[in-house]
Design a protein around this nucleic acid. Structure first.
Length: 305
DNA sequence: AAGCATTCCAACCGCCCCCTC
DNA sequence: GGAGGGGGCGGTTGGAATGCT
């Protein structure tokens, strides 16, 4: 913890106080907030008689003093929900917290960085992270139809990585997530050590559509792009492919794309106007809408106590 | 019991976005 | 249009608590 600064000093110097909050400060802020409600945080800090900056007051209220906060440990159901939401939203802690009543983004972030990350590491499970950076190739990972038929935006990767991974021997332009080093990608247990740009989705039984299914989609320039899935045995199949018009094809028949069901990518995931070819940015996605349009999420059905 | 290592988590930092002027 | 300020967010820090030897 951070040391509370010496009260006498900060008053003499007229500086804002930092560090741990004293019970007196908590009391002042809590009383003020309950009486007056939320407003301009710098005004709140001043009017409540606190030698704190507005940001510090906001953080203390949101993460600790709010009356609707839960003080209990994260339940297994909540943990499941956090895992699932993180697979969709990545490190968007505030959005995850918004779906867990009584929990704060800070709490979930800390929980993730301690227990879940450790557990995932121990279980040899990598989770997905959602980041968006300009001038990068866009990738999307697929949750197989077996577990709900979702398609989810996940990663960006550099053009360099993408170009390295393009299957030049193939006449189509499907993205090949296997780099040349793949031969060395199996550990002694036969488990795959996935290259960092392969996104894992799914749960843990090792069946197709669950742990072991890896979907990667890439948009390298104006070429078409594809999605490959891989099961636990390292068997590849192209379950989803996209053409240059952003039409997604679901391959139902062992790579026979003549017998596919097809639909617009934006129809599947509600990209709507966000999908504009090279101008597409994950950061502009309607994540709320995306989640709302996922009726098959089993974890969202329970009530958090 | 003591010392060291690890984990937990409150709080800060810096960046970004939005709003106002 | 752009400068400035406030708020929100994710990443990081560092000290307390806990575990281990």
């Amino acid at each position: 913890m951070r040391k509370p600064e010496d009260k006498g000093n900060y008053k003499k110097r007229g500086k804002v106080r930092k560090g741990l909050w004293s019970p007196e400060e908590d009391e002042k802020l809590k009383n003020y907030m309950l009486r007056n409600g939320q407003g301009c945080w710098s005004d709140i800090a001043r009017n409540a008689g606190l030698q704190r900056c507005g940001k510090s007051c906001r953080l203390r209220w949101i993460n600790y003093l709010r009356p609707d906060l839960k003080r209990s440990a994260i339940s297994p159901q909540e943990e499941e929900l956090i895992l699932h939401l993180h697979s969709i939203l990545g490190n968007r802690w505030s959005q995850i917290a918004a779906r867990l009543p009584g929990r704060t983004d800070n709490e979930i972030k800390n929980f993730w960085n301690s227990s879940i990350k450790k557990r995932l590491k121990n279980n040899n499970i990598t989770s997905t992270t959602t980041t968006s950076s300009p001038n990068k190739c866009k990738t999307v990972s697929i949750r197989d139809t077996v577990t709900g038929g979702m398609i989810l935006p996940m990663h960006d990767y550099s053009y360099d990585v993408v170009n390295t991974c393009m299957d030049s021997s193939s006449s189509n332009s499907h993205f090949n997530p296997f780099p040349p080093v793949l031969d060395n990608s199996f550990d002694t247990n036969g488990s795959l050590n996935f290259p960092k740009y392969v996104t894992q989705v799914g749960s843990s039984t090792g069946n197709r559509g669950e742990l072991g299914d890896y979907g990667v989609m890439c948009v390298p320039g104006s070429e078409g792009f594809g999605v490959d899935n891989m099961n636990n045995n390292g068997v590849m199949s192209s379950d989803y492919v996209f053409d240059q018009k952003n039409v997604i094809y679901h391959n139902n028949n062992n790579n026979n794309l003549n017998n596919t069901e097809s639909m617009k990518l934006e129809d599947m995931v509600g990209f709507g106007n966000h999908w504009q070819g090279e101008n597409f940015k994950f950061g502009e996605l309607d994540w709320e809408g995306l989640l709302d349009n996922v009726p098959s999420l089993p974890y969202l059905d329970f009530q958090v106590q």
